[in-house]
Design a protein around this nucleic acid. Sequence first.
DNA 1: TTGAAAGCGCTAACAC
DNA 2: GTGTTAGCGCTTTCAA
Lengths: 347, 347
Amino acid sequence: MPARRVSIGDIASQLKLSPSTVSRALAHNPDVSETTRQRVQQLAQELGYQPNQVAVALRRGHSNTLGVLVPHLAGTFFPEVVDGITEAASQAGYNVMICQSREDAEQERKNLELLMNAPVAGLLVSLASSTQNYAPFEAVRTANLPLVFFDRAIEGLTGEHISSVVIDDYAGAYMAVSHLVEQGCRRIAHLAGPPHLAIYEQRHRGYEQALHDHGLPYRPELVCPIGQHQPDGAAAMRQLLQLPCPPDAVFSSGDSALVGALQVLKELGYRVPDDVALAGFSNAEFTALTEPPLTTVDQHSHQMGREAVNQLLRMLHTATPTAVVLRPQLLVRASSQRVGQQQSLAG
Amino acid sequence: MPARRVSIGDIASQLKLSPSTVSRALAHNPDVSETTRQRVQQLAQELGYQPNQVAVALRRGHSNTLGVLVPHLAGTFFPEVVDGITEAASQAGYNVMICQSREDAEQERKNLELLMNAPVAGLLVSLASSTQNYAPFEAVRTANLPLVFFDRAIEGLTGEHISSVVIDDYAGAYMAVSHLVEQGCRRIAHLAGPPHLAIYEQRHRGYEQALHDHGLPYRPELVCPIGQHQPDGAAAMRQLLQLPCPPDAVFSSGDSALVGALQVLKELGYRVPDDVALAGFSNAEFTALTEPPLTTVDQHSHQMGREAVNQLLRMLHTATPTAVVLRPQLLVRASSQRVGQQQSLAG
DNA sequence: TTGAAAGCGCTAACAC
DNA sequence: GTGTTAGCGCTTTCAA
């Protein structure tokens, strides 16, 4: 007994009206008489009528669903962005459909196809780290489906319906490294990320430029291109400490790797920040909870999600695309503060 | 020039076939001749035909989308469950639509309505903490829409199409508290959660029973019903320490609150675990990174998500509903280990 | 083996 | 102010 849903037709026949009139009445169309409108609304209420959104979407040719494609939902960054996205979307009357590419280009392609056929009113995408072929995104572009990249964007790809929201990774890195220099650090190592992702390249550039602007040499042996997980950072730290001239600070392009480095330092009896000062990137939740708490660059992840939705909505209302760059914020905590008193644990 | 999508009708007219034949050919219907099938498939490929899923859903009366409703996506637990859900769902050919209730019953009701009209093939829901009125879920039940509760379920609500996947919160709490007793703790406080959520009530019961089974008295002054955030835990800890007879251990129903407690203890110069031993619940990412690392109960969140999808798929294939209870796992770390050597930082 | 026709539920043009 | 008709894209009888 599968409790059939009540449709416009049901209301129409019960009221001896045509479906169109019922539809109009429910849509508050001024053509319909006040009395009919009331009768319809009343019965609809009683029967618990709910419009079939699939039929509406088919009719209209588009839905009120936004498609979101993220590399993963581990860690804190993407969940926070997604949180911002769903918040802003539902405030604007949209719902959200989420897919994960699992950092896999092929999975990303499939999901893209899936979302385009869902169909969605627009797409919010952050690239998988393995994506090298941008053809699937060309397809989105030629379909004129509004697309907003967030955090990880395709640099070259522009179009009438393509926006992006990123943070200024270069500036974030520059701020962090400059801060380390100001704390008296002179041999600053860098735990870099996969260089084909623009965000990591930018962070590396910011690191390089900050060194240069403060008159410090760029030493290739202090730059470790590694994965972004805790063990990667730990392994890199061990190697760095075996250099003839080990670093007196580490700037990591991610927080997880930095925690790995911190653990190695403590294990081996180094003092943080006095022997080695540390700064990371992302403001992961745990950075405020380590001992010492970690200096890091906050990416305004929640706001990034909200902003991405705003961009999408603007494009849906025919405004031109824009490239939004959010300014990151350096959170100075004890892991990099060599002078003055230690801060409290709270970040 | 909005690059129109190619439809079955387009292929049909180009091939001078009827839409029905094309449809059959694409569906690998054996009735259609091999040659026509090939011609159709070929052209479909060339034109980049993609079925309009909205039309398919309208026709079929259901979609291949699963609706997910979570209280929030902050912290690590729900993102991990959602990760498991999307993984299992996409393996089974389903996509996933996610809504957040923001712990608000009214928002939850709206989202439920939204998802039911999306429409979805089934629902995966974890209750908002403020939900007292279960009427919206009755509606889901009478609509015979398959529903799986995960983590936070409605105890009384059963039906032909309602399953649940929870962990044994009682057992988890029991294990944690028993462990604290074995470490020599005798005055074990409990940071409890909102009691109208079954999970917190169960954890409280496990705490109580473990005390009882080890011959320890239940002292109401040691039980603090609090919010689940860091400051809540900190405030509660301060109060507990002002008791004439302060606790020698704390079992918290959540990890965030426990971190708050830890910070207060360290600030005031108490040694953990020697003065006060600590154990929490959830295995949040940061519990392995605090100093000392926190003993906690792992909830198998990723697996819970996968299992919830399995339950849903089983119900879609007409199997009867089941109530799955996952067994949690106690992760003993330094915050509760009083004898023997300290464990390493890695959790 | 293929085609014609109907209909999923809704809405918009066009009558009356 | 209301009804009739048509069609969004697809699948599935039923008929040929």
